[in-house]
Design a protein around this nucleic acid. Sequence first.
DNA 1: CCAGTAGCA
Length: 730
Amino acid sequence: MTSLLAGNRAQSVSARPKNLSLSNVLAYGEHMARFWRPGSERPRATLVDDEEGGVLFVSAPPSSSSSGFGHSSLERQRQRLPVFKYRDAILYLVENHATTIIVGETGSGKTTQIPQYLKEAGWAEGGRVVACTQPRRLAVQSVASRVAEEMGVKIGEEVGYTIRFEDQTNPSVTVIKFLTDGVLIREMMDDPLLTKYSVIMVDEAHERSLSTDMLLGLLKKIQRRRPELRIIISSATIEAKSMSTFFQARKKDLRHAAEDCVPSHLPAILSVEGKGYTVEIHYVEEPVPDYLQAAVHTVLSINDKEPAGDILVFLTGQDDIDAAVKLLREDTQDDRRRTSGLLVLPLYSGLSRDDQGLVFAPTPKGKRKVVISTNIAETSLTLEGVVYVVDSGFSKQRFYNPISDIESLVVTPISKASARQRAGRAGRIRPGKCFRLYTEEYFLKEMPTEGIPEMQRSNLVSCVIQLKALGIDNILGFDWLASPPPEAMVRALEVLYSLGILDEDAKLTSPIGYQVAEIPLDPMISKMILSACNFGCSEEIITIAAVLSVQSIWVSMWGAQKEFDEVKLHFAAAEGDHITYLNVYKGFLNSGKSSQWCYKNYLNYQAMKKVVDVRDQLSRLLRRLGLALKSCEKDTQILRKAIIAGFFANSCHLEEYSHNGLYKTVRSSEEVYIHPSSVLFRVNPKWVVYHSLVSTNKHYMRNVIAIDPSWLIEAAPHFYQLRAPNLAPC
DNA sequence: CCAGTAGCA
């Protein structure tokens, strides 16, 4: 057990990426407190041309001593942030370049400070707005309130934010606006050129989320029509180079521009150091056969040998994590002396709010906290107090096979960028250590530098419909930051065509296609809702749509499986999960939206509140689209027909003589099973339609309804015409 | 004989 650590070779490595190499020293004046303003003389910086891409680099100026008297402590804190030294350089680059790429790790202060610098320099004057996008809602809210505090204003006035369900802005006074990148894409539907924004900063671009990639592609298009727009891309990794190449204006466009036109079409790159402490990296000498065992041993070993400090372990999923937690807690009982000081806590998104909260509680005196987490702690949540990180080298990732149209969750080796990010989590309060459960040779020679962008491993129907709604007809020719496989694009077009959302020329149909684009949900759900309006069951269907759009309304279970199943029986409907959800929602309303009631019924209260929110928004949206809200009063056949209108492609029939619940999809004869969480698990009706497939060991259908196969032909004759002979009577 | 990486509109 202890040999594992002894076998680790220690190597001192900074967890943060090195600064970009082409550096010159900025010769700075002493007047750090003064702002550089557009139109004034440029800061005395040395700018260097990169021969490869014509990229400009600005190097790190010597650190300045703040003159700081007369400032509030908040102001002094702002000046101590690493990014402060680069204020003039950033403002200069933004003034002179259409696109500026800022490479900076966590703690550099770029997210909170740069929007303020831009405002101070006048970019928010004359009714213009500085925007800053984030991939996550929580980040939008917390960054916005921090900036409002620093500026001494109330949130929703000069500084505001917009996320779904919450618009905390005031159009006449808001000058700095934080929003999710998804919201900004939605805003383009009303204002395609985003005319009110003078600068748009896209933060966390290295995460390469679906909507960030899409936004960057769209912004590049906008830039051609709005030369005065400035774009800042902020990224934690040196992927900057490919971003820079992407944003470089094409030669054709440059011909008309003067050589030294302002702004330059050559993107600028600036590197800002972070505030993280050095993290010592340890590798194993031999590959480990079982990362779960290795992780547990490493934790015990750290507890034995290393001084106080919390431990963060990265595993892949709930299964792994629960198993590891169990092992460590058992060990606590076996061997009181050694591990009695360990407080072992799981962390993943499926946990209830309360359980997630436990990991943020301060560690009791004399205890050492061990948090066993999924990727959620890599980007979404930050744990203070972590000094040791154990990195399994794996995470679960979603992959999409456009041929079979199936998404699967696969345990996948992480990238070097992720490994570095994970290690960095150990260096937030003081120098830390990271124990990698893979060899150094593997890290250096085999681990991929960057992960595969989400765009290249996803189903693209939502993407395609949004681009269509923005009037981009040539999807295959769209200038993507990373092109998705053409098969995936073709598949998305096919699916949208079969739903009647696109016509033969791949144009949005009227009114269905345009209405679907207006609804901020998966197109199959939107189609289901629109059909429900015709069937006269929209009241019920928007409830179902709302439930399907939250993670899971059931509370994640530990031991009480049997009681849980019994409670669920209360609500269970023979027709399937969707109808069951209606019963749950009704019960929730009858209870007066009580959290106690949720607790008793193994329901996630937060999730139920979100269901109510989403449902409200959908009913407002339907009213705006002039569609009727009607109830079908318990006619579950009509309800299921409306569901089928969106999900007819997901039909399956039970294999004859199947004793283990084997189904085959009608479309492609894939072998699938009903997910154990479904109320139809073990009920196994002859014909079913599922909402989604999750593919782990097997293909599991989640959210299933029982149907009559004749409804399929009725709903989608074009889709089932050729297959009709296969639809045996039931 | 049985289970959900993360996240957004």
